[in-house]
């Protein structure tokens, strides 16, 4: 669990404030890579990718 979810969310929003859509996207991408490196466990990473994927359309 994230200890102070509101502060974390606000920091994330602040990081994106005033960025162009391209820069925003790049920030998120870098963030994912940094966090993935931090996790460093392939099973956890594959699970996370599966969870984040959009549900297949019916």
């Amino acid at each position: 669990m994230i200890p102070d979810p509101d502060a974390f969310y606000a920091a994330l929003m602040d990081a994106h404030r005033d960025l162009s859509p391209e820069d925003s996207r790049k920030l998120d991408t870098k963030l994912v890579l940094i966090l993935a490196n931090h996790i460093g466990d392939m099973r956890v990473l594959l699970d996370a990718i599966a969870l984040a994927k959009p549900a297949p359309r019916a």
Partner: peptide, 26 residues
């Protein structure tokens, strides 16, 4: 949400909250 990124995060949190406990406090 103030911009597209904020909207995307907001919607992602809401979608995840159905299945994932960790997203609910967000």
């Amino acid at each position: 949400p103030k911009n597209d990124a904020a909207r995307a995060y907001r919607d992602a949190v809401l979608e995840l909250s159905a299945q994932h406990e960790f997203a609910r406090p967000l």
